[in-house]
Every structure is written in C-alpha cells, then in structure tokens.
C-alpha cells in the first residue's frame, strides 16, 4: 500500500483511503483517475477483489457523480457521507441541509434518492443493521421517488432531520397550522403558493406528520376541479 502515489487536484495521496476521502471535492477529476488504466493497474496489484468490483462498477452505465460516490466507499468504507462537495457528519446534518434550501431543491442532494446513494452508504457502513427502521424508510422513499420526486426528496429531509419542524425563509415552525397561518398572512400569498405547492414541500411535511386523509381529500378536490376546468376550458374570472 505504501507504494501508491495518486496525484489528485495538485495533491499527492499515498493511500487509497486518503484519495477516497477527498474524491467528493472534485468528482470530474476523480472519475478520470478512476477509469484510467494506470489507476486500475495499481488497484489490480494491490487488491484484485477491489479491482474487480471497481471495474464492474465502471462497466455499468451509471451517472458519473453517483459512480464516484459508490467508488469512494468501496475504496474507503469508513467515511462520513460525502458527495459532490458536501460532507455530512450525520444523517441529521444531511436532513438539515435538504431542508435549509427548501422549498428549492438541490439537484445533487436529490441524487441520494435518485441513485439510491444513501441506502448504498448505509449498507456499506452497516447502518442497515444499526438502524434498520431508518434504512427501511429510506428504501421506501426511494420507491416513492419514482412517483413523486420532490415529495420524496423533502420527506427524506424531514425524516433525517427528525425535529418535526418546518423551515421557511430562515424561520422555524413547529406545526403545519402555525406554518400556514404565517403563510396566509403574508402579503404575497401568490408567490408563497406557487413555490410551496409546486415544490411539494408542504405535502412532504404533512405526509411526514401523517396527515394522509387531509392530503388525499386535497388532491382529490384539486384533481377534480382541474380536470373539469380543463374540460370546460373556461377559467374563473378573477
């Protein structure tokens, strides 16, 4: 292992673990190194099994960032969650970060569900045994992501953050009622409405708090009205 020297973004790394620990900072460059013949030859010499796994990973048609993410945990399983410039010391920190952007969506953080990165991380770091309930819930969100991306994404945020609070423009609200009371008082309810409903942020929060009946009724009504409006092609005069 001491014979390894990997030059990565102007730095020399002497172990695979060190290299892996910094891959998330410059994913494009890390990807170039990963697929280089030189790196693969070194890997083959050091650990044939690891070489086979990485080579197999490189053969699968996968998104580049997600591939780098998976490769870094194969090279160094003892790492905190690191992805595309982000580093999180805990699941809660990841959840907080997701919610801190809300109702906007960070496309890189979305990859945790899109490419099943979080469950991959949990499996590699044995969190599927340490926290089986959390693991199962994240798995479920990965499935939900296929139906409603944004809602599943924010639900992941609420699940990991775990305080049961909703964040909006730097303010914290401890219940949907408190949050909506604040929102409807605002002068610009239209702006609030368009960002809040389209992003699915509020619905993710309500689902997280198990307001399933209310959401179901809301969605039924909205679907019914929009369908009829479409058919009528005649919107209400404002």
């Amino acid at each position: 292992m001491n014979e390894i020297t990997i030059k990565f973004h102007g730095q020399i790394y002497y172990s695979l673990e060190d290299f892996a620990r910094n891959m998330y900072l410059y994913t494009d460059e890390a990807f170039t190194i990963l697929k280089s013949q030189k790196f693969l030859k070194i890997l083959y010499k050091i650990n044939q099994n690891l070489y086979n796994t990485i080579a197999e990973l490189l053969r699968t048609p996968f998104q580049q960032d997600a591939l780098v993410f998976k490769a870094q945990y194969l090279l160094n399983p003892l790492m905190v969650i690191s992805y595309h410039g982000y580093r999180f010391n805990s699941f809660q920190a990841l959840g907080k970060k997701i919610l801190s952007f809300a109702p906007s969506i960070d496309i890189y953080l979305k990859d945790f569900l899109k490419y099943h990165l979080l469950t991959f991380y949990m499996e590699k770091t044995k969190y599927d045994f340490k926290e089986p309930k959390l693991y199962q819930e994240v798995k479920k969100l990965e499935e939900e992501f296929l139906i409603n991306e944004n809602r599943a994404y924010f639900k992941l945020g609420f699940l990991l953050e775990g305080s049961g609070q909703i964040f909006y423009h730097g303010k914290k609200f401890s219940s949907p009622q408190e949050f909506l009371s604040h929102a409807k008082e605002g002068v610009n309810i239209i702006d609030f409405a368009s960002s809040m409903v389209k992003s699915q942020y509020i619905f993710a929060y309500l689902e997280y708090l198990h307001y399933d009946q209310e959401i179901s009724l809301f969605e039924t009504m909205v679907h019914l009205i929009e369908q009829k409006e479409k058919e009528n092609d005649n919107l209400r005069k404002v």
């Binding site: 009622q177 307001y211 809301f218 929009e226």
Partner: peptide
C-alpha cells in the same frame, strides 16, 4: 385551479382559519 386557491383549501382542511378570504 390557482395556486393560492390550493393554499387556502389546504389551510381549510388543516383547520387554519381562512374565512376572511
């Protein structure tokens, strides 16, 4: 259906008072 209508409907379903509207 307008987005603000949706917010008000949601408020109503969650027992937030929107009778002023």
């Amino acid at each position: 259906m307008r987005e603000e209508d949706k917010v008000l409907l949601l408020c109503d379903l969650l027992k937030v008072d929107v009778t002023a509207y």
